[in-house]
Amino acid sequence: MRKLVIAISMLALAASAALADPILDRQALMKERGKIVGGISKVAKGEEPFDAAAVLTQLQALQANAEKIDVDALFPAGSDTGDTTAAPKIWEDMAGFKAANDKYVADVKAAVAAAPADVDALKAQVGAIGSDCGTCHQGYRVKKG
């Protein structure tokens, strides 16, 4: 009986995952990413005090977020229509989009590995990460209104 309950639970979970909305999923991840980057940016700009442990925690959260981006799952064919700001260029240049995402993930991982010891080191890391964000926003995102 226990095995049957587990099997049914696994099937229900798989079915709910199959019904997930890639547009809503990627928007949720990007919204989370924006909040994390916003917090890190405030420290880099001097709007909040630098605390090495807190910054590292935020960078680790950013890395966890970055690693959740599965381009194939979140940007499948047909998810370019509806309530999305994903540009058609994503599907026209999937290799370039994946390369841009891979660079972003690598830069976030490097920032975590380097664990900035002061605000100047953080500024350099935020610059690299921000450049990656800008690349995607300029090339692979439709500008809002």
Rank of each mutant, 00 (worst) to 15 (best):
F75I: 00
G82M: 07
K89S: 06
A114S: 13
K89W: 05
D93T: 03
A87H: 15
A117G: 13
A121K: 14
Q125N: 06
D132C: 02
D118I: 01
L74P: 05
Q58A: 15
L74A: 07
V126R: 03
K68Y: 01
A66T: 10
G96V: 09
L122G: 03
A99F: 08
E92R: 12
A61H: 04
T81M: 14
A87E: 04
A77E: 12
T81S: 15
A77D: 06
A110R: 09
A87V: 01
A117V: 04
E67K: 10
E67Y: 07
A117Y: 01
A95F: 11
A111N: 06
A106D: 12
A66H: 06
G127P: 07
W91K: 05
L122E: 08
K68A: 03
D70K: 03
T85R: 11
N101C: 09
K89Y: 01
K68P: 00
N101T: 09
I90R: 02
G78L: 03
Q125E: 12
A99S: 15
L74F: 00
G96H: 15
P88C: 15
L122D: 01
Q58K: 15
K103Q: 15
K109E: 09
A61Q: 12
A66M: 07
Y104D: 04
V126H: 04
I69D: 00
P116H: 09
A95I: 09
A61I: 02
A100I: 07
A87W: 05
K109W: 04
A106V: 03
Q60M: 15
D118E: 08
G96W: 10
F75N: 05
A99R: 06
A128L: 08
L122I: 02
L122A: 06
A99N: 14
D80F: 04
I69L: 00
A110L: 08
Q125Y: 01
P116I: 09
T84I: 13
V71E: 03
Q63S: 10
G130A: 05
A106E: 13
K103H: 14
L122P: 05
D132Q: 02
V105D: 07
K68V: 02
T81N: 09
Q58P: 01
A100R: 05
S79Q: 06
G78N: 13
G130Y: 09
A117M: 08
Q125I: 00
T81F: 12
F97T: 04
Y104W: 09
D80T: 03
D93L: 10
F75M: 06
F97P: 03
E67M: 13
V108P: 02
A111W: 06
N65A: 00
L122Q: 11
A99H: 12
